[in-house]
Each structure stands twice: as structure tokens, then as C-alpha cells.
């Protein structure tokens, strides 16, 4: 059985590599909290590349405006249609920011509308339980960005399953630290990443 591989998407525009430690941190959490078979290192895959079809889960982040090429759009559409799960996080945690506006436009064009997910969505109880919706980040609580706490995620579906999950909560900053430093946290703040992966693997 192929192990789960955490893939970070590389796209032509913007700064796709703005959170380079997220992959290692999520992999560490999966190993800590689950018995899933997990590849020990993540991979960076170009969005327009056929290689993406080998990995059904991918993470996309950035601060800067996003404009997909035609090849990237086509590749993403095919991948989603065939069962891919994309987690997109706005590294600015800012609903008026350029990443948010442009990424939402691109995603809507490829995957359709992205309404807010209800707080009882299975994603919030796929492994750990968040009965009130997605966990907040320290960046939101500190008032950075647009000084708002975004108490929702957005999502686009394919055939009844969540195919694209979009976040304004800046998990990219929240999870972008070396896994060894988890020992300084009273509660591991990467646990929601486990839910994302488990949801993708089970729905």
C-alpha cells in the first residue's frame, strides 16, 4: 500500500513556498496521532504536472496574487474530478488580501463556488473534534491581518465529497515551525492538519 505523501503545490505565480516547514510538521503529527502509513518527507509538485495525479492530497498557500496558467487550471480540474483533495490556506489571513481575492477567483473558475462549511461538517470530527468549527490560530487571536477571527472554512464539492477546502485562518503561519518545538505547546496546534488528512483519506 502506498503511504500518504504530503504534497505542496508549486504554481507559477506568487510565493508557493512561503511555509516550507508545514509539510514536516504535518507529517510529524500524522505519525504522532495515527497509524497511517506516511511518507517521511513531503514532495513539491508543479500544479500543471502529470505527477500530481500520483498524489491525491495537496496543499497550496501563499501571500501574493495567484493566477493559474491554462495548463495549471486544466491539471487542477482533472485532478479534482478524479478524486484529488486540495487544501488552500491564505498565508495573509486577510479576506481583503490579494491572495484571497485572486485564489478564490481561480478556485471558483476551476472547482465552482466555495460556500462556508457548516460547523458540523465531518471534517471537524474526522479525528480530533472541533464542535464549533475550525480551530482558531494565534495570528487571528492576536488581531493580525484583518483583525478578524474567521470562524469558518470554505469548500467546493465534487460528487458529494469535499474536494477543495479553503482557509483564511493562516494555518500556514501557525504550522510553519520545526516539529521539535511542539514540546513547548500545551496543546499541539497542528492537530487540525490531522483532520484534514484523515478526512481526505476517508471521504
Amino acid at each position: 500500500m502506498s503511504p500518504f505523501t504530503f504534497v505542496t503545490l508549486q504554481y507559477d505565480s506568487g510565493d508557493w513556498d512561503s511555509a516550507p516547514l508545514v509539510a514536516a510538521n504535518v507529517i510529524d503529527s500524522l505519525a504522532r496521532y495515527t497509524n497511517l502509513e506516511v511518507a517521511p518527507a513531503g514532495r513539491v509538485v508543479a500544479l500543471g504536472s502529470p505527477e500530481l495525479l500520483a498524489y491525491p492530497f495537496a496543499f497550496l498557500t501563499g501571500h501574493l496574487p495567484v493566477r493559474f496558467t491554462a495548463q495549471e487550471r486544466a491539471g487542477l480540474r482533472t485532478w479534482l474530478d478524479r478524486g484529488g483533495f486540495l487544501f488552500v490556506d491564505d498565508h495573509n489571513h486577510d479576506v481583503d488580501g490579494m491572495f484571497h481575492k485572486t485564489a478564490m477567483e481561480e478556485l471558483a473558475a476551476v472547482a465552482g463556488p466555495l460556500p462556508k462549511l457548516a460547523t458540523n461538517h465531518p471534517l471537524y470530527r474526522a479525528h480530533f473534534r472541533w464542535p464549533d468549527g475550525p480551530p482558531n490560530t494565534s495570528h487571528e487571536l492576536n488581531g493580525w491581518g484583518d483583525n478578524l477571527v474567521h470562524d469558518y472554512l470554505r469548500g467546493a464539492t465534487r460528487g458529494g465529497r469535499l474536494a477543495v477546502c479553503y482557509s483564511n485562518k493562516d494555518y500556514s503561519s501557525e504550522w510553519n515551525f520545526h516539529p521539535d518545538n511542539k514540546r513547548f505547546y500545551a496543546i499541539d496546534n497542528t492537530r487540525f492538519a490531522v483532520n484534514l488528512v484523515v478526512y481526505a483519506l476517508t471521504h
Partner: peptide, 24 residues
């Protein structure tokens, strides 16, 4: 065990009209 194989098998059967109970 939760993994791509179990997930895609379940989805393939669901697509074909089976009522799938998953236990991952």
C-alpha cells in the same frame, strides 16, 4: 486501514450506485 486504496474503492462503488458503509 484509512488510506487511498480503501477510500477510492469505496468511492468507485458509491459512484456505481452501491450503498457503501466505510469502516476505516
Amino acid at each position: 486501514r484509512a488510506g487511498w486504496e480503501a477510500r477510492f474503492v469505496a468511492e468507485a462503488l458509491r459512484t456505481a450506485g452501491w450503498t457503501v458503509e466505510s469502516d476505516f
